[in-house]
Design a protein around this nucleic acid. Structure first.
Lengths: 214, 214
DNA sequence: GAAGACATCACACAATTGTGTGATACTGAT
DNA sequence: ATCAGTATCACACAATTGTGTGATGTCTTC
């Protein structure tokens, strides 16, 4: 029988080593490569055939969501399982829309993970049981609230603003650094509050961290 | 030769499985148990002999710092290696003061981890090379700034306040929920800003998350 | 029983944030 | 060529946050 070729992408070396050690024990799975961010994963796909990719949601350089979109564009046949510590319900829908096949929490068991890889390889959708509930919750939310459970598109400029806010800069200081007026920064913040469905900067920064934006 | 008895404590099942798989490959190391939080780790120590404990810093129920203090009190001979994704320099000093033997980032390699366990068992201090720099930095900081690199003591009441701020409540709303005046809440915030060496609520919440406080 | 940490509150004021409303200009996609 | 999205800015005003200063009662701990 042909083994399932798996690529692992995670920015933590120990996680990479650990996952490889777990998966290599299963006869039907073969770990063919490792990557420490989304960009490396894409590079690897250009050179070698992969069936399933395990992708960490929180990664520097290119995060899980962005990587998923790129992979699905260039390699639509590859199955993607997102691995995360984050149980933010609101991002799940975005991931599946982007083309992810599965979404597993890192506190899943190794058996569940292996089963997930096999299921994904057969084309089945995979999701942590803890998350099913959250997902349904986010789908059945009041649509008037503007939160349809989808992670909104945050522009590059907006990310710049969020990062500076997270570094405790005031609106004035941010305006100076970006060479724009305070009104502009205030407008960016205002737009972000609506997009991200938060009430203030604290909530915004917290959610941005949860989403792996900064 | 007697094997080094290792206990692993991490709230992520996959991390536990992965670490066990990595460590079991080394002939001189034996994983004798697993725990998914600090409390479980302590319970385990009461029943079995352990040489080295790998402790995740971020855990629910009882975090790494608190667990370290408890372990050192009851089982001073056990070596503790802290594992973390967090490279906040300011917490390292606290950990060593509490009695930790090592502090490794999760993006260390498996070789480094195994060497770390062996070194710790021999009584050597272990630290990620990435962190040495940060630690020295935090030690040589201007003491006038009130930041001596030690994580300050945050009281229960203050934690309550931080949690509510992180949930986007205003000072008024927090005061109502805690049945105190807004002045009191303002004072708590003011004290926290100084203790945690931050400029505003955004910085405070971010650092609280980094420190595993909330 | 004095010292120190904790939690509570007051009052005033400056600084900053957040909101409402409207406008201009550029860009890329249909 | 039009439209949607992005980025920019203005002005005004309300709300909230942050700061300076000082005070009181309680509870450990030494």
């Amino acid at each position: 029988m042909e083994k399932i070729k798996v690529l692992i992408a995670d920015d933590h070396q120990i996680m990479l080593d650990g996952l490889r050690a777990i998966l290599n024990k299963d006869k039907s799975i073969q770990v063919v490569g490792k990557a420490s961010n989304g960009l490396e994963a894409l590079e690897f796909l250009k050179k070698e055939v992969v069936d399933v990719i395990l992708l960490d949601l929180q990664m520097p350089v290119m995060d899980g969501l962005e990587t998923t979109m790129h992979i699905k564009k260039s390699f639509p046949e590859v199955k993607i399982i997102m691995l995360t510590t984050n149980d933010e319900g609101s991002i799940i829908t975005s991931l599946f829309k982007a083309g992810a096949t599965g979404y597993l929490l890192k506190n899943a068991s190794k058996e569940y993970l292996i089963k997930g890889i096999k299921d994904a390889h057969e084309g089945k959708k995979v999701i942590s049981s803890h998350l099913t509930e959250k997902m349904i919750e986010s789908l059945t939310q009041d649509p008037k609230k503007g939160n349809d459970g989808t992670k909104p598109i945050i522009t590059k400029r907006e990310i710049e603003v969020i990062k500076l806010i997270a570094q405790e800069y005031t609106t004035q200081e941010i305006a100076d650094q970006l060479f724009v007026s305070t009104n502009t920064v205030a407008t960016h913040k205002r737009n972000l509050f609506v997009k991200m469905d938060v009430k203030n900067s604290v909530g915004m920064v917290k959610k941005a961290v949860d989403w792996g934006l900064i």
